[in-house]
Structure formats: C-alpha cells, structure tokens
Amino acid sequence: MNKAPQNQRRKGNHNGVAAIFLTPYFAFFIVFSIVPIFYGLYVSFHKWTLAGKQGFAGLDNYLYAIKDPDFWASLGHTGYFVLLSTPLLILVPFALSLILDAKLKGRTFLRTVYFMPNILSVAVISFVWIFILRSDGLLNTLLREIGILGQEQELFWLDEPKLAWISLVLITTWWTQGFNMIMFLTGLQDIPTDQYEAATIDGANAWKRLVYITLPAMRQLLILITVLTVIASSKVFGQVFLVTKGGPANETRTIIQYIYETGFRSNELGLSTAMSFMFFVMLIVLSFLQFKFFNRKSDQGE
C-alpha cells in the first residue's frame, strides 16, 4: 500500500472480495496438502500406532530408520528403478515423437495407439501384464512359437529378481511413455520448418538435421522432461505393488511400499511418517531443480 505503484491507480486492495474467491480452493489446499505435512512431522516424533499416540519418542523413529537396512534397501530399489527406467522413458517417447513428426500416412492412428496404454488404470495394466508374463502366459508362449525358447523352456519373468526388474521397467515404459511423447511432439512442432528446408538445401541428411537442428532446439524440453521423469519414477509404487508385490523376497520393494507396510502392516505410524518425511525431503530437493527450471520457463512464456 505505502509503495502504491502506478498500476494501482484504478483500484486499491480488495482483500475481502479476494478472500471470497480464494477460500473455496484454499480450504482444501490447506487441509489436504499443507496440514498433512506438519501433522506427519508431529507424528514422526512420537510412538504412534493405529490406536493413537503412545508417547513422545524424540528422534528415535529417525534414528531407527537410519539404522534400518530394509529402509535403505527399499530406497535403493527405488533408485535402481529410476536409473533403469529414465533412459527408456526419454529415448522411447523421443523416438516415437520423431516418427509421428515425420508426416507418415496414418499418423493420427499411430498417435492414438502409441498413447493409449497411458490412459489405463495402474490396476488394469498390472493385471493384464501379470497374465502376459506368468510362466504359461502370452509372452513365454510367443517366445516358444517363434523358437527363441525351446518347447519345454520357460522364463520366470516375475519370480527371478533380474527378470522382475526388467519386466517392471518395460511395463512402466509401455504404460507411461505416451505422456512424454506428447510433450516431445509439441516441442518438435514448435521448430520452424524453414530451418529444416534450409538445411536440406545445404545438403544435410536426416541424421545431421537431427543432431544440428532438432536436438539443440529441444534441449530445454529434454532437461525438463528428464527432471519430471526422474521425480515421477521416484514415486513408483502401484505397478510394483500389484505385479510383483515387492517380491521375490522383497527384492523389488520400493520405498513407498515400505512406508506403507511400516505404517499399516507393522502398525508403526510414527516410524512410517519419519520415513515419509525423510523421503519427502529427498524428493523436495529433486523437485527443486524442476521448480527452478519451471520458473525460468514460465517467465519466458509471459
């Protein structure tokens, strides 16, 4: 108020009206986004079960989590998943977006089909793939029919740790790549075509056009999508929980599943919220990169 910049000449502050407009949204935002963070923090300093508060625990829950090998193992599994899935979730959708941008006949059909798995529920895709991957399922049968596996051979896609990870990463790529693909496609369509035409006249082949025009133009978007994908993959839970249930022998149990099991199966809500909070801080650090990038991007947009 006391600064009173010129653009306020027409109107002063309308705090009352603004409050009326803001309240319906903010009530939910505060109760279901902000309160859980602080309440969780409060719970994490107590011994707490589903029956309620059992007493103050200080830093005990945090110290316990830090010494808990299963906590670190689950974090490791999540990290491993991020490392395996991120390159695929960048390369596959990027390649598909290049195909869609190549003006083939039937590209609307192709786009629809490439994107379709993305709209299915995690419950649906999980149970479809459980049946495709089980020992007498579609994949093994197919591999036998085309002769890659012998008639009596079978691969245990979900029961052998290495194969289980491969399966989970491939399922996730199949399911979620469409989102990144559309983002890439939008980026590709923003590149002015005259740049390509000029390069073609100068004798640049398709590969050179990709390296010298497309990739530099897509740099920002590639960074953004990588950050978004890393964060999304860090939160992996549903498909692993449903397809392998974290098995075999907890070898694929992710951190979110471990937090869930600690809270609701072991009935240790205090410990569970302490783990949540530690994971939360790790994700915030990761997201901070996204936020910085995002801010820069939207400044340019305006």
Binding site: I37, K235, I256, S272, T273, F288, F291
Partner: peptide
C-alpha cells in the same frame, strides 16, 4: 506443485 503427495500419504 512440488509437494510429492505419495510421500505424505500416511499422514
């Protein structure tokens, strides 16, 4: 937008 909802699902 940065808040990872999955991480605070217990609370």
């Amino acid at each position: 937008m940065m808040l990872p909802g999955e991480a605070t699902i217990v609370s």
